[in-house]
Measured scan of single mutants.
Amino acid sequence: DETGKELVLVLYDYQEKSPREVTIKKGDILTLLNSTNKDWWKIEVNDRQGFVPAAYLKKLD
């Protein structure tokens, strides 16, 4: 059920640097789980959840 889920576009590649982070690729469109922290957003990638720098993402309307 995708209702109410926010999507984000990945602006730059990011390689995870800790187990709490996930790797993302430029151009991916992913589900945003939590954006309350202005610097690190929690997203879902391939059934994995983790954090990436918010500056690497853009919210889609």
Rank of each mutant, 00 (worst) to 15 (best):
L7E: 07
K26G: 06
F51D: 04
L30E: 05
L9M: 09
N46Y: 10
L57Y: 01
K25N: 09
D47L: 10
D47F: 10
Y14G: 00
T36G: 09
T36D: 15
A54T: 04
P19G: 08
S18V: 05
E6G: 13
K17H: 08
V8E: 00
V22R: 02
K59M: 10
N46M: 09
K26W: 03
E16C: 09
I43T: 02
I43H: 00
E6T: 14
K17F: 06
I43F: 00
G4Y: 15
V45G: 07
D39V: 15
Q49L: 07
E2C: 12
D47M: 10
T23H: 04
Y12Q: 15
W41S: 02
Q49C: 09
P53A: 02
Y56C: 12
K5W: 11
D28Q: 15
L57M: 04
W40M: 06
L33G: 01
N34C: 10
T3R: 08
L57I: 06
I29H: 05
K25Y: 13
Y14T: 00
I24G: 00
R48T: 07
L7C: 08
N34G: 06
N46G: 14
I24D: 00
L32Y: 01
D39L: 13
T31S: 09
L32I: 05
W41N: 01
A55Y: 10
W40H: 03
K42R: 09
W40G: 01
W41Q: 00
A54V: 05
W41R: 00
P19S: 11
G27P: 01
V45H: 13
L11Y: 02
D39F: 14
N37W: 07
L60H: 06
K42L: 15
V22T: 04
K38T: 12
K25P: 01
I24V: 15
T3W: 13
Y56Q: 04
P53F: 02
D61M: 14
R20G: 15
K5Y: 12
T31Y: 10
E6M: 14
W40K: 02
K58L: 14
I43W: 00
Y56D: 02
N34V: 08
I29A: 02
K17S: 09
V52I: 03
E44F: 06
T36M: 11
G27D: 06
L7N: 05
L30D: 01
R48S: 06
Q15Y: 14
L33C: 06
E16K: 11
K58D: 06
L30N: 07
Q49E: 11
V52Y: 01
K42T: 06
E21A: 05
G27Y: 05
A54K: 06
